[in-house]
Amino acid sequence: MAQPFLEVSGLHKDFGGLTATNNVSFAMGRDEVLGLIGPNGAGKTTLVRLISGILRPDRGSIRFKGKNITRKKTWDIVNMGIASTFQNMRPFRRLPIIANVMVSCLSPRAMKRGEWVKKVEAKAMDALEFAGISDMALEKASTLSQGDLKRLEVARAVATEPELLLLDEPFGGLSPAETDLMAKSIARLHKGGRFGRLHSEGPAMIIIEHKLAQLMKIVDRIIVLDFGNIIADGTPEQIVENPEVIEAYLGEGEI
């Protein structure tokens, strides 16, 4: 049997007396877009941070393309092809927007994959173009609005040309119009192809989101977390009808 693209087994993380993820196990395929939902404090962000290497698990393992990445450094994981964005945006505020993206373009992975690109700035510009904020490339990141900061986060992650993209609330704080635009960008990215000097592998994605209506449109499968446990795993249609999910998170009524 072929190796799963990403395989998480028995992942456990405690913060003092609080269990953030409790023996979480799942696997995903190369072309999947996976939604990760659940109430606040369910352990979604912790799970994503464990995969991206920002946090170290107490137990369990993570395998990416058959390789164990459980205790690898964050930058090694990014250079293997897993990029992530932050729920609370973390731009380099005093640097111009283009320099924010250039840092990602200067990572070993991006440099190796774009060695035919003469100037790092050009590649960074294409990432900004993709995210739709290239017209503000020279402004300081501190001047950006909430929506544009989300776009900058995506541009930074995309610039490393990942194969797996972990998006933590990409629609958070965005207006309905901005949310639609972001959803379209994400769908376009998943299709793959070339954006100027930037190449998209059509990354698999794990998306944490509370705006379920938009999420349902772009994901193939949803995992529901509650108190660190997986309470449901299935297609969007199966999830909305799951009584346990309705009780723990969705409630009655329309999404």
Partner: peptide, 24 residues
């Protein structure tokens, strides 16, 4: 230089530099 940009960025937010794939 390019090294300078990374040094700048480390001062601003080291974790974000790490998640950009740079060995801080």
């Amino acid at each position: 230089s390019k090294t300078g940009i990374i040094l700048h960025a480390i001062r601003e937010d080291e974790l974000a530099v790490r998640t950009s794939g740079v060995n801080t």
